[in-house]
Design a binder for these strands. Structure first.
Lengths: 182, 182
DNA sequence: GTCAGTTCTGACCGATCGGACAGTTAAGGT
DNA sequence: ACCTTAACTGTCCGATCGGTCAGAACTGAC
């Protein structure tokens, strides 16, 4: 035993990221991580001050990358600002997929596992939003709308009265879907 | 004591929904709900077979409403299909705001509470996506893109190869923001 | 008042979790 | 060979959780 400290730390982080992404933060115990990493639970707490510290260290790179992006676009404006931000943000989410997934822990778990057969309904909603199309562009746009409306509805930044919020959400969603009003 | 059964059940559901939306499902204990509802923990389990049953009963109305919407648009196609689906979906998310929020339990808790000052970064990202505009339409659209990309990146329906997914996400996002390519 | 049935509760249980700690093992410098 | 230091572990602990159960408290019908 007694590998180099950084090797063990890396192994722990990798195992934790994988388990967090599947069972979520609260759904993963220190013992789970230790077993996967091939060490004792006590060894975890030797390398990390606590369970939360593992999570923080896992999310830090994503946070730093986002901060870097914001710095880079800080001096821009207009079309360039929007374009660079969008492209950079999309790349970030694709690069840090697993990190994002671990944030959705229970949503996925609840959606699948329980009596609520939400997955089936979500599929139906996706189909309808895509206009029954199976083409990639339509399906990606449908996913975008699914997530956009879901989060914006819950966000409530108090950015606008409900009627305005509703109207703008609908207009934005239809733009996303490249829908030309009939 | 010994109120009518339905009254107590309603009180429990209301308290649970409020607490779940703030602290999440796993972050709320039966004792928390009982205290807020003004009864004993044992009384909860007299009215509900278990903690999960409370959650299921809370989410059922939203699920049923979504199923109803999908039934309603099942016979439509083309532009009407997309329009009706979008409007219906937006209305659902606004109507069941609290139910959706409870699904985001830990995300919000982690974003705020910890060393990661994610909220500040999210604000910066929103500003950039909105092109530094403070107008409601731009800010709503920015929120939409924030949620859309975040969820679509993590979704990985294997709907498309990564390069296609990336390109379509960028195009969709720019459409959402009503951005005309320069 | 009596009594059956519903509603409610305090006390308790087993399981699990994050974490603390003393002690053990391996590695490297001298 | 010796000793210091880092790496690691078995074991225990307090807290918390979801859930059970026997019985108390209340209610309405008679």
């Amino acid at each position: 035993m007694a590998r180099s400290a950084s090797a063990m730390r890396g192994q722990i982080l990798e195992s934790a990221l994988r388990l967090f992404a599947v069972h979520g933060f609260r759904g993963t115990s220190l013992q789970d991580i230790a077993s996967e990493a091939g060490c004792s639970k006590a060894s975890l707490l030797y390398h990390f001050a606590g369970k939360e510290k593992i999570l923080i260290e896992l999310l830090a790179p994503a946070r730093d990358a986002l901060a870097t992006l914001l710095d880079r676009v800080a001096g821009l404006e207009g079309g360039r600002l929007v374009e660079e931000t969008v492209v950079g943000y999309v790349d970030l989410t694709l690069r840090f997929r697993r990190e994002i997934r671990l944030l959705f822990e229970d949503i996925a778990e609840m959606s699948c596992h329980q009596d609520l057969n939400v997955m089936e309904l979500a599929d139906g909603l996706l189909d309808a939003l895509a206009g029954r199309s199976q083409q990639a562009p339509a399906r990606v746009a449908a996913w975008m709308v699914l997530g956009a409306v879901f989060i914006t509805g819950a966000a409530d930044d108090e950015m606008a009265p409900d009627e305005v919020l509703r109207a703008e959400m609908i207009r934005s969603a239809l733009r996303t879907l490249d829908h030309t009003p009939s």
